[in-house]
Design a protein around this nucleic acid. Sequence first.
DNA 1: TTCAATGCAAATTTTTTGCAAAGTC
DNA 2: GACTTTGCAAAAAATTTGCATTGAA
Lengths: 144, 144
Amino acid sequence: MTASETARLLQSHGIRCTPQRVAVYQYLDAHRIHAPAEAIYEALVQQFASVSRTTIYNSIRALLDGGLIRTVMIEGDFVRYDANVSAHSHFKCRRCGEVFDVMDGEAPPPPPSLHAFAVERGELNYYGCCPVCRAQAFPGSPIV
Amino acid sequence: MTASETARLLQSHGIRCTPQRVAVYQYLDAHRIHAPAEAIYEALVQQFASVSRTTIYNSIRALLDGGLIRTVMIEGDFVRYDANVSAHSHFKCRRCGEVFDVMDGEAPPPPPSLHAFAVERGELNYYGCCPVCRAQAFPGSPIV
DNA sequence: TTCAATGCAAATTTTTTGCAAAGTC
DNA sequence: GACTTTGCAAAAAATTTGCATTGAA
């Protein structure tokens, strides 16, 4: 996605455009690794030597408010962000820490006890050990 | 649950007993509000004037390792803890911040794409507006 | 031109660490 | 008695805030 396409996307979501905001969105869109703010900062500092963490957090907030990105609340010491806002869930490997997309799973509809609640969204996370880490733990076993 | 009953419970889970650990577990068991470490600290400081946050975090870690409590990863600036380790999910009201138990909902079994992953657990969160906050937003409407 | 965003520095908040004293088994 | 936990102080890490300067519409 080019910078001007991204700029139009932000504007169509009511987000004022700045080069930094465009770059934050482009980073998250191109690197679907559920990056935390610090990773975005480290990537953007290559392009904008003087970019600040404040701007990263400001840009993230603007993109969240516009609905262009989403938080991923999963075990870890920081909040992760995801440019994939379609229905899907996540798996976190407790060994290597990586967060995987689970495209064929999504939160079930709200159960009866939530009938009086206004439910905006559901979020489904799985935890365990990924195939690569399993292979390291049990060398020789097939990865399936 | 008395202190000695709690002490036996911790020991049966391989957790060494101290008065502070017993109190942390008792607090979480009695107050099912998905408390963060700070709330536990504020409660325990009433009983143990000299208790430290370090001890709260140490105790939490011991209880987590023993499987007596569980983390609740949901939007917010801190980790919450839950003495209810049975299958259930959570709802967070984005207006008042409260986290509700959803006893009739739980994470679905891992979908096909996770077949090569060792899945330890699933976690299901909902977000939105609780009945009380809805009533405040739309006065006069029935809470259902 | 007007209002909003950037970037710096400093503060705030949550959680972790090093270590001597005290406690558990 | 051996080893662990406690609690203090300090550090670390993530995020927020105040404010002067710059930039977008």
